[in-house]
Write a protein that binds this DNA or RNA. Structure first.
Lengths: 147, 147
DNA sequence: TGGCGAGTGGGGAAAAGTGGGGAACTCACC
DNA sequence: GGTGAGTTCCCCACTTTTCCCCACTCGCCA
């Protein structure tokens, strides 16, 4: 299964709906059933996991202990924001008010392919994130990939 | 079986009833028979375990030794608060006075999906919990999931 | 230049949440 | 044993939100 690639700035209509770029839709595994689980991302954005990938995540979460304080805190934080959404016949999903608010999304959204997930950002917030990241692309590559 | 997800602030009516969000109801295993065992949670909230999951919990509790002082204390504390509740035809449950009082719930309740259980908080108490947790989401994720 | 696929927008039906009325049941007190 | 107050439970009705479907426009490709 190919990873999600590319980026696009789309509009968010008055009902909180955003289109998912056709390229990303076609990269969806049929197992995902046109369905995503969307949750609060790391950094100020929304993560969109295809259903099949999310199932794997749930297994990890399910293996955490209820009796461990930090595990409880993490489980609450990831699950409370989660919501299952299905593409409508136009290839859109509707964002929940809660996540729209969290990510500071207004009438435009930046849709980002990020390998195993899709990310949705407020365009300005994304711009700001790119600027504030101290390390540039080349430096990051060195650090992360150990080149 | 998918875990419970999402969060919502709902009202508690004069009869102590709270609606369970439709999304969480549909995540219920049919085996649970629209029934929960509700008990005092860890942290200042109420835990709501679907019947099928609660059965597993009871097995764990049952396997504890009667001869161990702490096991006895734990068994008492978890069982003394437990009560079985069933959804009414409107998808609501009624909270017992004891648990309402314990969790400090007034006329509003925060309903939280927390994977294998549903949690019910007083909205202010939940806010306070989120603030007092020192670690932020990203740090927690790193620690707990080792990402 | 016509057709198809992609993105955008809105209207109507159905479902979800909220609140209250009334029957049945319990318990206490006369 | 009967009466009455207090609970509990079940059902009905209203309001708001959500979801599903249809219609339009724009741009690309044949």
């Amino acid at each position: 299964m190919a990873g999600f690639k590319g980026h696009a700035e789309y509009s968010v209509d008055s009902k909180g709906r955003v289109a998912i770029p056709a390229k990303m839709r076609s990269a969806l595994n049929p197992d995902a059933n046109s369905t995503f689980t969307m949750t609060r991302g790391f950094d100020k954005c929304v993560f969109l996991y295809p259903l099949d990938r999310w199932k794997e995540m749930e297994e990890e979460i399910g293996s955490l202990s209820t009796y461990d304080r930090e595990a409880r805190a993490f489980t609450r934080r990831i699950m409370m924001w989660a919501d299952e959404v299905t593409l409508d016949s136009q290839g859109r999903i509707s964002l929940t008010k809660q996540l729209v608010e969290f990510a500071g999304i207004k009438d435009k959204a930046m849709i980002l392919g990020a390998f195993d997930r899709i990310e949705i950002w407020d365009p300005e917030a994304f711009e700001a994130y790119l600027n504030e990241e101290s390390a540039d692309y080349e430096t990051l590559a060195e650090k992360v990939m150990g080149m």
